Each structure stands twice: as structure tokens, then as C-alpha cells.
Amino acid sequence: MAIPTAPLTGKALLKKLKELSHLSKSEKAQACGYGTETKSGEIRTNLSAFIEAVLEAEGVSVDPEHAIGRGRTPTYRVTVHANGQLLIGKAYTEMMGLQPGDEFEVKLGYKHIHLVKLAAGSGSEE
């Protein structure tokens, strides 16, 4: 089986996978360019890169820099805890680019809460 010179990615990869549904995982990876030929002529399959490319083509980021929280998808819902507190999880604070120590003013409205970020150093010092 000839290995393509450049590994397939994105929509081209997904399209090729549909055509190769009858092959094994290693054969699919090789046919999509995720294999290299060794000096002895053997074909070594890079399954890790292949699976990562498939996930990214499906819209799942495996890069820790772009991951949200612990892999959970935010639901945009929170619950009041038994002690009366609301917890805004790490996934949301990361999406908003918030850093430890950022301060907010809480503005209550009819059926909503707004968090207004305060400029650095403008918090009330008592």
C-alpha cells in the first residue's frame, strides 16, 4: 500500500475514512498518510498522530492549551450550593480569560446577575 506524502487532515481525512471503513485502524492510518517506511522497508504506523488528527477533524481539540476544564463541556448552568454560594467553574473563567485575583462588582437585576469586572486596583480597600 502506498503511503501519501502528506498526512490527510480535516474534511479530506474524514472523507477518506468513510471510503476505508472496511480496513483495520492501522491500514486506515497508513492509507491516510500516517505511516513511515523504515530503512529495512517496514511500514511503521503513527496511530497516535492519526487518532489526534481524526479527533481534531471531528472538532475535538486534544491540545491542552485549548482544552476547557477537565474535558467537560460547559452547560452554562450553575446550582446554588447548600451554603448559599454560587460557584462559577474553571471552564467558564478560562473561557473568559480571567486570572486569580480579578475582582468584580455584582449587579443584581430582574432574573439575572451581572458580573462587572473592576479595573486593576479599583477594588474597595477597607
Rank of each mutant, 00 (worst) to 15 (best):
M1C: 06
A2P: 15
I3C: 07
P4I: 02
P4W: 07
T5Q: 14
P7K: 12
L8H: 02
T9F: 08
G10E: 14
L14H: 04
K15C: 01
K15Q: 10
K16P: 00
L17N: 01
K18R: 15
E19F: 03
E19V: 09
E19L: 11
L20Y: 06
S21T: 12
H22M: 11
E27M: 12
K28P: 02
K28H: 07
C32T: 03
G33C: 01
G33L: 07
Y34N: 03
Y34T: 04
T36S: 12
T36K: 14
E37R: 13
E37W: 00
K39D: 06
K39P: 05
S40E: 13
G41A: 10
E42P: 01
E42I: 00
I43H: 10
I43N: 05
I43Q: 08
L47D: 00
S48Y: 13
A49K: 13
A49Q: 12
F50V: 05
E52N: 12
E56C: 02
A57I: 13
A57P: 05
E58Q: 15
E58P: 04
S61Y: 10
V62C: 10
V62I: 15
D63W: 00
P64A: 15
R70K: 10
R72C: 02
P74M: 06
P74I: 00
R77N: 09
V78P: 00
V78C: 13
V80T: 10
V80E: 09
V80S: 07
V80G: 03
H81F: 06
N83I: 00
G84S: 08
L87A: 07
I88G: 01
G89S: 11
K90M: 10
K90T: 10
A91Y: 01
A91C: 08
Y92R: 00
T93I: 08
E94G: 06
E94S: 14
Q99Y: 05
P100N: 10
P100R: 02
P100H: 02
G101W: 05
G101Y: 04
D102P: 04
E105H: 05
K107H: 08
K107C: 06
K107P: 02
L108M: 07
L108K: 11
G109W: 07
K111C: 07
I113W: 03
H114S: 14
K117S: 04
L118G: 01
A119Y: 00
A119N: 09
S122R: 11
G123P: 01
E125T: 09
E126A: 13
